[in-house]
Amino acid sequence: MTGKDITLLLQDWQKGDEAALEDLMAAVYSELHRISKNYISRERSGHTLGPTGLVNEAYFRLIDHNRITWQNRAHFFGVAAQVMRRILINYARERNTAKRGGGVMVLSLDNVTDAAEEEGIDLEALEEALNALGEVDQRKARIVEMKFFAGMNEKEISEALSVSSATIRREWRTARAWLFRFLKEGSDGS
């Protein structure tokens, strides 16, 4: 898929074409995969490519920079956040089921999963909670995704979702409390 296509898809998605999102994610995902494979085959120094470097490289490869506006950039990272969430949950699941080595993304996600553990976050449980949240309020789930799985700030998220920064801040706060309760109840129950 060329930069032009991706940029078109981003614009479609921006205009509200939800079907474009699936195509976008597929494109981003395969580009990430390709880059990381290339990276592994080139790299000798043992230096690992983190998700940030990876996604940013994908960004520069995938986007038609002649046509993109900064709003598209925020959108792109919004998509990347979803992709990272998927990659990460797959990775965490594989790790938990001790099927390591066959992971799709050969990059240093251990740091990330370790960081989650240190913060006391069970990624699989969070995934379940996020799915539940998404059913009630799709936008809140997206905000969490962008903030937590991509480190986007309020301004960037507001650009990606075309709502005010204040709304982002408020909805994030509710979403976080909501998720916290969901996780707490889950662990209490089990």
Binding site: F77, L88, V112, E119, G120, G151, F180
Partner: peptide, 24 residues
Amino acid sequence: ELLAMDDEAEKKSFMNKAIINLTQ
């Protein structure tokens, strides 16, 4: 209930730090 949860989450710095930083 959510306010109580928020209070607790805040104390624990729940999800305050992104685990992946793509843009920063």
